[in-house]
């Protein structure tokens, strides 16, 4: 008690913590608990049967498959974009740097109808791909395109500060010791970037799983082929099948929580590694 009282020179601890907790509980925790309570009332057999119908299983495959693919594409290009933005100079760089955040700022419905128009067979990009026999809009490929759009800033913005922090002396040392540029990247730079890259990848993946607005326009929403789980929740609600919607929501919630936990562990791990390295270098 004496220890904690020492810090309470400042006013407002009870009030601020109290308000934050009440706000969070009423708005987030109680509603989530309500969803779980609904699920507990169901028998396990019912739950399992609803959660694993062929159509639902297909929707998991579409949702997670497309989200995984999009997050992988984002990890690859996001790393390159972050590298180019930090290390190279070119005209309009600041403008492009600001543009990276567009998916955070542009409402998902706008992204949805725009990407659909662009990638439809008559659109600017789609018409270029038709002669090659590639169709994107109204196919699972369209979902991947929408999810790539949504996920771009996550990878770039988590990797960018880490690249800025890399001390170039390390690269010089590697080069002096005879490493080629590629060896330096693989052995020195990539290991330093890997935790941030993985965090960005997981953030993009987790966002992509729940995404609804941008996907439904471009997906075509064919059952078994291009129907995502969030859309199934909505169609179950529209058919007054609340139980079914609850089951699917619970499945998605559990997966999201596991991912959230993974993100937190990753960030904790990355932060600890970072401080350890720093404290080794600067003993003071």
């Amino acid at each position: 008690m004496t220890n904690s009282r020492k810090h309470r020179v400042l006013p407002g601890f009870g009030l601020s913590l109290g308000f934050a907790l009440v706000y969070l509980s009423l708005l987030v925790l109680l509603p989530l608990a309500g969803l779980v309570a609904h699920g507990v009332h169901m028998s396990f057999a019912d739950f399992w049967a609803t959660a694993t119908t062929p159509r639902t299983l297909a929707s998991y495959r579409v949702t997670f498959g497309c989200a995984l693919l999009a997050a992988l594409v984002n990890a690859f290009f996001g790393l390159i974009v972050a590298w180019v933005l930090v290390r190279y100079d070119f005209p309009g760089k600041r403008f492009i740097d600001a543009l990276v955040d567009l998916p955070f700022a542009l409402p998902t419905a706008v992204a949805g109808i725009t990407l659909t128009t662009l990638y439809a067979n008559t659109g600017w990009v789609g018409s270029l791909l038709v002669p090659l026999g590639i169709q994107i809009a109204f196919k699972p490929a369209g979902i991947v395109v929408a999810l790539i759009f949504i996920g771009i800033p996550f990878v770039v913005r988590t990797v960018q500060p880490v690249i800025e922090d890399i001390e170039q002396e390390i690269e010089e040392a590697a080069a002096t010791l005879g490493a080629t540029r590629w060896q330096t990247f693989r052995r020195v730079l990539f290991p330093a970037l890997a935790p941030a890259l993985l965090t960005g990848f997981t953030l993009a993946f987790s966002r992509a799983i729940g995404e609804y607005g941008s996907v439904i326009f471009i997906a075509g929403n064919m059952p078994m082929v291009s129907e995502i789980t969030p859309l199934m929740i909505i169609s179950k609600l529209e058919q007054y099948d609340t139980q079914g919607a609850i089951v699917l929501a619970l499945v998605m919630l559990v997966i999201s929580f596991v991912l959230l936990l993974a993100i937190n562990l990753l960030q904790w791990y990355a932060a600890n590694r970072h401080t350890q390295r720093h404290s080794e270098r600067k003993p003071a």
Partner: peptide, 16 residues
Amino acid sequence: LPFAVSPVVAGLLFIL
């Protein structure tokens, strides 16, 4: 937490 919850699930919570 709300970042990890799908917006559709968030809406469903309030319907429940």
